[in-house]
Structure formats: structure tokens, C-alpha cells
Design a protein around this nucleic acid. Structure first.
Lengths: 245, 245
DNA sequence: CCCTTTTCACCTAGGTGGTAAGAT
DNA sequence: ATCTTACCACCTAGGTGAAAAGGG
């Protein structure tokens, strides 16, 4: 697996988010079917159907090369805490501040790409997309989703595991896997977007000068939210002007 | 694979359709994005996005048992012509009539269940659903869909194939597969529903007595269309009264 | 005349951020 | 200050039959 290579897709979008300080929403139960959707008949249990937890946006996608076309591989992701800190967002200065030690680490789960296992040829044929990966802050989640602590920073990590066809090849073999970390995909887990700073002069705390010196946790406008709205097709309903396609 | 067994799911629904004479819609290109959906920007190609061809309804679903939990199996379906005839629908008598020899047979394709290959334990864990299977009447289809001749009768067939782990085990081995045919799933391929006969006295050709004697190609009301509308969730928009859930 | 193709309104299913109210 | 719950309007994506239009 030593020849394996992975190129991050949508790199410029990730970098655009990373310059602002990427935030990813985590939720507990997801949302439920709206009341208005329930049938009159059955008189039964309103809002009884749980809905999915949150995807990542941008979606983590890679283009693979250097695999053996005929060998089997498993692809998976996990999330590594970037530091041992908890953060809070200071509205008055529009910046993130360390606020003590990290909360107890969430159960370290992994997400297997649902097409795993598959041949190298299949993985290399087209972009591999982790759009089924869901994030939650529910420590007791029983849907196999990735559990993260809100207000903590994470580094997504991607692993290619060679499936050794030999019976009883040493379990969890020494170097049958290769891992990739793209620094531009790091993010802050949040339950609601914190980086709400509006463009200069548009309410909130006007006339507050931009903080100086700049650091990667200090955002500039346009904010995370506006960039998500502008770039995520599912958020098209919140767009104002005439975005360029 | 000799111990393998398959039970058809939704058998009573299939039988209800079969009593009326099941019809399945086949289409050529599917449909396109509606004009109203095209963006003003880009000024480009209206209706440029092809849409999927037709599913079956009811969906072919089976519950499997008797597989080796640890062995690999491939599941697939194909469609066998039930006879060498072409049919036409006689509106005046609300019945199907043979109308000559079958058209040249369409390319004999198979549909692999997209989870193939998988372990016996995985296949037996829950109902196996072929809801990704699409039907078309396009002899030149290049999307791998099942090609059928309209106005011809077909018997869906389901196959369980044991994946022999030995290298160069005789290719297409003698008896490493087992096939299942459920007669209640047979159907007539059509490009539009033919069995349009309305309830007695509601237009069309009133006062036409029901044909006698009864045979499986002679439908009674309620028609295929009404049963599809009543039982397919995607057709809910065409329901009139207060259907029982 | 019989069959096929196109277009449409109306659904299912679910992914967005917004907002308000309440809980910790 | 942050998190949870509930509800919403508005999208993407695509599966229905009806009806009109087209074709041999």
C-alpha cells in the first residue's frame, strides 16, 4: 500500500473555509418530521420518525492513485483532536479563545466508506466521497455516527487499508495501511455557527476594529455561514443576490 | 448453495396485482429536468439532464435463509419471456389479445444487486430489495438497465450465486447457483397502462358485459392503475378518498 | 388506430440555515 | 455563554400517473 496516494478534492473550497476558520455543525437527535406532515389517520405518534444527523460541508472527497487495481482495500475516516483545549467564541472581538482543558474525549469511532471493501481499480475509477458520514455530539449515539465534542478542534484523517488475502495474516497487520491528513480540512465542532460577525457597519457591534494581530482562529467576513450558504447546494434557499454558478 | 431458500416479500400485494394482470411501465429516455427548473444564468442547455428510467412496482424483495453466514454470495435478477407472443389490449372487451409472434428478443441483461458480493450473514440479516432495478424499452440502452419489449409478458427470476474462494474454481461452476421464480410476479411490459377499464357505469363503453369465461389476462376493476395509486407511496398525489394506511 | 413520447403537478425523502423558547 | 428542542421555508433529487402531443 506504500505507493498509494490521495489528492484532496475541492481543495480551494476547503482553503477558503479554513482561512475563515471552518465550523461543522454537530447535533444530537437530528430533527423530526414536521407536525404538518403527520396524517390525520392513525391518530398515532406525532414526530415519531427520527431524521439524520449532520453531514460535513464541504464533503471530504479524495482522488486515489497508486493502488493495485486487483487487490481489495477498505477506506475509512476518523477524527483526531487537534489539541487538548476547549474553546469559546468571543463575540465582542469576533475571535475564538481557549477556555480550559478539553472535555473527556468522545468514543473514538471510525467511519468506513460504505463501498468497502472494493478493488483498487474501483476506488481509483472516480472520486471517493464520504458524503454519508454524519457527525453527532451524542456520547450515547447508537447509529454508528462520528461522535465529537462541541467547541473542540478536530483534524479529519483518511486511511487506506490493504485487505490481505492470506488467512490469519497478522491481525491489524504492521504496515498494511496508509493514512492521510489534510491540514486545510481541520475544523471546530459547534452546535450553532459561532462566527456570526457581519460585514462592517451592519449591526451587532459596529465600529469595533478588526482584531490584531491576525491568527487562524480570528475570522474575517464573509463569515462561515455566508460561505456555507454560497457553496452548499442544499442551502440555496438562503441566498440573496445573483450568485455565480 | 443447495440449502438456500428465498421467501417473496409483499406476496399478498403481488397476488392482488397478479389477479388484475400486473403491468410494468417501461420508458426510453426517462424524463428531463422541467423547463421551469432551468436557471436564467449560464443561458445553457435546457432539459440537458437525463432522469432515471422506471422502477418496478411492487418492488421485488426477498427474505433469504439457508446461506453460509461466512461465505460470499452474489445476488442478481433477470427476466424471462413468458411466451413467444406479442399482445394488444382490446378496449372494447377490456382484455388482452395475442397479436402475433414476439418481437426480436431484447439483449438478455441481468441486474446485480448493488451490495454484491456480500457475506451470507449480511444477506440474511434483513430483506433484500431490488429497488434500484430499472426497466427500459431502449434496445440501445447504455446504462446497464433491464431491456424489455413493450406488450410482451415476462417472468422475473432471482439467482443466488455462491462465490467460490478457490482460485480458478471451474469458471461459471456447475451448480454454484440457485434460481427462484415466483409466478405471482409475472407482468406485462407497457409504455402506458392499458388496463384502463373504469368501474361499471362510469364512462368509456358502458353496458358492455364482462367477458366470459374469465382468464388471467382479463382484468376486473379496480384496475391496475388504481391499485398502483393506492399502494405506491410516490403516487399519493393521485389518491382521491381517505385510503387506509 | 394503436402505441410511444413528452410534459406536468404532486408526491417522497431528506439536506440547508433561521429563529424562538427553554434548559443547563 | 452555550446547548437543546421544535418548527419553519426553501432547497436538491427523484419516483408517480395524467394528459397532451407525436408517430407509424
Amino acid at each position: 500500500v506504500s505507493q498509494a496516494a490521495a489528492r484532496l478534492e475541492m481543495g480551494s473550497l476547503w482553503e477558503e473555509f479554513n482561512r475563515l476558520g471552518t465550523e461543522m455543525i454537530v447535533t444530537k437527535a437530528g430533527r423530526w418530521v414536521p407536525e404538518s406532515d403527520r396524517d390525520r389517520r392513525g391518530g398515532g405518534h406525532p414526530r415519531a420518525t427520527p431524521r439524520p444527523r449532520r453531514r460535513m460541508f464541504p464533503t471530504f472527497q479524495v482522488k486515489l492513485s497508486g493502488l493495485d487495481p486487483l487487490a481489495d482495500y477498505v477506506l475509512l475516516m476518523d477524527f483526531v483532536p487537534l489539541d487538548d483545549k476547549r474553546y469559546r467564541y468571543a463575540f465582542h472581538s469576533s475571535s475564538w479563545l481557549a477556555a480550559g482543558r478539553a472535555d473527556p474525549a468522545a468514543p473514538g469511532r471510525v467511519h468506513f466508506h460504505p463501498d468497502s471493501p472494493a478493488k483498487g481499480a474501483q476506488w481509483m475509477r472516480q472520486i471517493v466521497s464520504f458524503d454519508k458520514l454524519k457527525l453527532t455530539n451524542n456520547l450515547l449515539d447508537d447509529n454508528g455516527h462520528i461522535i465529537l465534542n462541541s467547541m473542540h478542534r478536530y483534524q479529519p484523517r483518511f486511511h487506506v487499508v490493504f485487505v490481505d488475502p492470506r488467512r490469519d495474516s497478522e491481525r491489524f497487520a504492521h504496515q498494511n495501511f496508509k493514512s492521510f491528513s489534510f491540514p486545510e480540512t481541520q475544523f471546530m465542532a459547534v452546535t450553532a455557527y459561532q462566527n456570526h460577525r457581519v460585514s462592517p457597519g451592519a449591526g451587532g457591534h459596529p465600529n469595533v476594529p478588526p482584531p490584531f494581530p491576525r491568527d487562524p482562529l480570528t475570522p474575517l467576513s464573509p463569515q462561515i455561514t455566508q460561505l456555507k450558504i454560497a457553496s452548499n447546494p442544499f442551502a440555496k434557499g438562503f441566498r440573496d443576490g445573483d450568485p455565480e454558478p
